[in-house]
Design a protein around this nucleic acid. Structure first.
Length: 618
DNA sequence: ATAGGGTTAG
């Protein structure tokens, strides 16, 4: 065996491995073909064990071929490992297919199944799994806990309940259900399926649960909208990490309970648990909560927190910041943030465009949209919705129409029901009633209530009582026994057309059926007081620094001094889920701690009414 | 000869 000097080798690809192949610190290992350098099998193994980068791996592979080592199982196994490490799945798959053993060991099967699982290519991992199960004596290899972990995860990705049930059966038959990893993936799978009972059953059978088991279960409850159970588990779990916090917080965000998002963020900030600091996911959720609550002050605070803690400003983060500032009325700051992004991506552009559209700045939105196209960034379906809304609110009919009619051929976006809704709204607002009706008639999807509402509201604006009436008749036929939401709409439509007899007719019918619907509410801050208005006439008022939460129905009233975030949160938790229990004496349930300030100044959280207040009528 | 490899959120 000979080695090249550094000078001689420089035309070749140079490898400086850290293993013992380096006979001197600058020793060179060069391409096999040119110089016929021979290295021993042991050395090859060591090199492979380092998971070399692509170019070097190819050289080593060539060396293996020339030395006819490609029939040595352990070498091929290592090679597959290396190719998967650099994400060259096709090469790995080739080696797997031509494996020297009639069946590769289970580890290699697992590696192959795992890579397809990671790539979200469930059909490939299923197909490999099927092949594995079909192996016969004497080459039979049995799936182990690793195999099942990946396959269960693939079922979750595929959202295939049937596969999931079959695989679960196999897991049980192999006695692996109580295995921590398999169990955790099963909990996750049922969480994705939103079958929380089954998730809990698996959770119950795991003896030594870890933070993943608990977190997966919380995730399942949150996905299924069962925030009460999610909170219960969250408080019960012995150790929480930042992911657990992220799950519960994003759970609240996903269920539209933005007040609790901020409360839990606040509690997280005060947490003494190790390494529990708000991460990007949590902060993005919190910003979105601020956006939805119109909580500019809290949003500002979070922005400052991000800067102060030098949290990497990712694309998601700047998108969330732009959205928050735009929805909280500070389109100027939103633009400032947007303009500072060196290479905005589609999400950044979209939040900027949507923001401009809420502010009625259609022509600015159009400028940003053109800038986006110039930068070769393709819009997505949300961008188009933003643009259609922008055009709609600024009367840019031609521009909007051109975007609507070209979205499919220019950017491959098939118009969805939302796009039709926006476009009909655009035409209707501008007074092109016949055109709007024509679009609805020629839709390739069945028009939904939103579309009819857009048309009706156009009828109202342009006082087209004839068309309005025919649409109302049509809706009535559509929803003879439909959900109550359309009845509310219907009565509003009659009201907007001034047909009060019909209004009372619909309202009476609703009353008899005991319609349950979300109560709308809005609030406004006047002189340090938050005033809440609810559709059902319930009026609520909070003043600072003593927060008073009134529940008109029970007549129970609670005064809260500035208490620690933890007890405040616990209070809200209990209060929220006591759900109108008559016997509950809130003020005595908690010893209120006074004087403990919020962990960080400027975070005047209880200023905002808690979103549960706008929940369902009891 | 033997180990090797994995799960959760956004």
């Amino acid at each position: 065996m000979r080695f090249l000097s550094w000078r001689k080798a420089k035309h070749l690809t140079v490898i400086k491995p850290k293993c013992r192949i380096c006979y001197s610190s600058t020793a060179t290992f060069a391409a096999v073909f040119q110089d016929k350098i021979h290295i021993t099998r042991k050395e090859l193994c060591k090199l492979l064990h380092q998971r070399p980068p692509k170019s070097q791996l190819k050289q080593i592979h060539a060396q293996i071929l020339t030395q006819e080592l490609s029939s040595t199982a352990s070498i091929v196994n290592s090679l597959i490992h290396c190719y998967l490490h650099i994400k060259e799945v096709t090469s790995a798959r080739f080696l797997f297919l031509h494996h020297p053993l009639s069946s590769p060991p289970i580890l290699i099967w697992n590696l192959m199944i795992r890579v397809y699982c990671k790539l979200q290519n469930s059909s490939e991992s299923f197909s490999l799994f099927r092949q594995l199960l079909n192996l016969d004596h004497p080459i039979r290899v049995l799936p182990d806990e690793y195999t099942f972990t990946f396959i269960v995860t693939s079922c979750a990705h595929q959202k295939s309940f049937v596969h999931g049930k079959i695989v679960h059966g196999l897991v049980v038959r192999n006695g692996l259900e109580s295995n921590l990893y398999v169990g955790n993936s099963l909990i996750n799978m049922y969480s994705v399926f939103k079958i929380t009972d089954d998730a809990y059953k698996v959770f119950d059978r795991i003896a030594d649960r870890d933070v993943f088991s608990w977190t997966s279960l919380i995730c399942g409850y949150a996905n299924n909208g069962e925030m009460y159970q999610a909170c219960e588990i969250f408080y019960k779990m012995p150790v929480r990490n930042d992911v657990s916090w992220a799950v519960i917080i994003s759970g609240f965000a996903g269920n539209g309970r933005y007040m609790e998002v901020l409360l839990y963020l606040n509690e997280m900030l005060g947490s003494v648990e190790d390494k529990v600091r708000p991460n990007e996911a949590v902060l993005v959720c919190a910003l979105s909560a601020c956006a939805n609550l119109g909580a500019l002050e809290q949003g500002n605070w979070i922005h400052a927190y991000i800067k102060r803690n030098e949290i990497r400003d990712s694309s998601n983060m700047s998108t969330a910041l732009i959205d928050m500032y735009a929805k909280c009325g500070r389109i100027d700051i939103a633009r400032l943030i947007f303009n500072r992004i060196p290479r905005p991506d589609v999400h950044n552009f979209t939040s900027m465009i949507s923001g401009l559209s809420y502010h009625g700045l259609g022509d600015h939105a159009l400028t940003v949209f053109n800038r986006m196209l110039d930068a070769n960034v393709n819009p997505n379906e949300v961008t188009i919705i933003g643009m259609l809304n922008a055009c709609s609110h600024s009367g840019l009919v031609e521009e909007g129409s051109s975007i609507f009619y070209n979205m499919e051929n220019l950017w491959g976006i098939k118009p969805q029901i939302e796009h039709y809704g926006c476009y009909v709204d655009l035409l209707g607002r501008a007074g092109y009633m016949e055109k709007a009706l024509g679009v609805v008639k020629n839709m390739h999807i069945k028009p939904d209530i939103v579309i009819w509402r857009a048309l009706l509201s156009a009828c109202r604006i342009h006082r087209n009582i004839f068309l309005g009436n025919s649409i109302i008749n049509f809706i009535q036929k559509l929803n003879s026994d439909g959900p109550s939401g359309s009845e509310v709409l219907l009565s509003n439509m009659y009201a907007s057309l001034g047909n009060w007899e019909k209004v009372s007719e619909v309202r009476n019918a609703m009353g008899q059926r005991k319609t349950q619907s979300d109560i709308g509410c809005s609030w406004i801050e006047v002189q340090q007081k938050v005033n809440l208005y609810r559709d059902d006439g319930f009026f609520n008022c909070m003043s600072l620094p003593v927060y008073q939460i009134e529940r008109g129905m029970e007549g129970c009233s609670v005064e809260l001094n500035l208490m620690s975030s933890v007890s405040f949160s616990a209070f809200l938790f209990r209060y929220a889920f006591a759900s109108f229990q008559e016997s509950m004496d809130v003020s005595s349930s908690f010893s209120l701690t006074t004087g403990t300030s919020m962990p960080l100044s400027g975070f005047d959280l209880p200023k905002f009414l808690w979103s549960r207040t706008s929940g369902r009528a009891g």
